[in-house]
Design a protein around this nucleic acid. Sequence first.
DNA 1: CTAGCCCCGTTTGTATACAAAAACAAGATG
DNA 2: CATCTTGTTTTTGTATACAAACGGGGCTAG
Lengths: 185, 185
Amino acid sequence: MTTLTTALPAAAAPGTEQRLLHETVLERLRDLIVQGELAPDTKLNERVLAGQLGISRTPLREAIKYLASEGLVELLPNRGARVAALKRDKVKEIFAVMGALEALAGELACANASEADIVEIRALHYEMLAYHARGDLANYFRCNQAIHMKLLECTGNATLADVYRGLNAHARRARYIANLSRERW
Amino acid sequence: MTTLTTALPAAAAPGTEQRLLHETVLERLRDLIVQGELAPDTKLNERVLAGQLGISRTPLREAIKYLASEGLVELLPNRGARVAALKRDKVKEIFAVMGALEALAGELACANASEADIVEIRALHYEMLAYHARGDLANYFRCNQAIHMKLLECTGNATLADVYRGLNAHARRARYIANLSRERW
DNA sequence: CTAGCCCCGTTTGTATACAAAAACAAGATG
DNA sequence: CATCTTGTTTTTGTATACAAACGGGGCTAG
C-alpha cells in the first residue's frame, strides 16, 4: 500500500473560490480510491487517515459518507468503512448500465447538438483513432473520455451526465486496478 | 410547512439489527424531502433540525452529506444546505434517464427471468390494470412500483437497481409535490 | 491442550465546544 | 437620503472530548 505522504494544502491559492474542507478531502479520497492507491477492501481507519490528511475526523467522516453514497466505500455498522470491493460481476453490471446511458446520450446528442459540437466530436474521434493506431493507450482513453463528456454535454441532460459520471468513476477504478495488477506481474 | 413533531425513537425495538443513528436520520430526512414535508428550497438549519430530531449536529451533518450525493439537497458553501429545487426540466431529465434504464431492465429481465417471475409480473400487471380501471391512483402507483422493482430484481443487476432507486426517489418526490400543490388549490 | 470467558485496548459513534464566516442592523458620513 | 462601514448576532465549519461497541490476549476450568 502506498504511504499517502501528501498532506492537504494548508492555505488555498489566491483566486480560490471558497472550498470547504470536507470537499477537498472528498476529492482527494475519491482519487485515492479510483486510482487504486487505496486498495479494495482496505479498512479506513479514521484516526490514521485524518492524521495523514492533516485534518480532524469530523470532515473526514462527512466525506466518507458522501463516498458511501457513490458506492466507492462500504459502511460497516460500528466498524467504520472500507474501500468497496471491485468484483468482476459488479464491473460488468456497471458497464451494462453505462451502455444504456450512452445509448440515450447518443440519441439526445443527435437531436440537440449544434454543428460546432458535431465538428468537435468528429475531431476528437479522429484524434482518438490516431492514438489508438499508435498504441498510446493513455491518450486514447483520455480522448475517449473527452468524447463521452462532450456528448453528455450536448444532450443538455445534466442528470444523465451526473449519473454517468458516478458510474464512470467506478469504471475508471476498474481500469486502474486492472493496470496495477498487470504491472505487478 | 409541517411542524415535524415526531422525534426519533429513543430505543430500538427488540430484534433490531444495529441501526446507526445517522442512518436512521438519513431515512427520516429522505422521507421528509420526498414526501414534500420539507419543501424545495427550504434552508436546513442544523441546530433547529437537530433539535427537532432529538440528536446532535454531527450525525445530522453526515446524513445531509449523503443526501447531497443523492441530489436531494444542495450544499451551499459556508451557508449550509437546502432542499434541492425541483424544476420542471430536471424532472423531465430524470424521467428520460429512468426510461433508458427501464428499457435495459426490460431486456435483461426477459433474458433472466424465471417462469415464476414472469407469472408474478403478469399478475401484478393485471392487478395494476384493475386499480387503474377503478381510478385507485394510490394502489395503481404502488402496483406500478412493485412491477418495476420486481423487474429490476429479475435483471440480476444490482447496480442498475441502485441507480434506478436513486432516480426513483426524485420521481416520487415530483409526484408528491404535484399532488400537494394540486390539493392545495 | 483446548475451549470458553473476562478484562482491557482500540476504534467507532455521538455530543459538545470553539473558531471563522456570513447575515443583519444601526449609525455615521458623504 | 442613500450608502458605506462597523459591530453584533446567528450559523456554519472544524476540532476535541466522551461513551459505547468491537477485537484480542490472557487466564482459568475442563
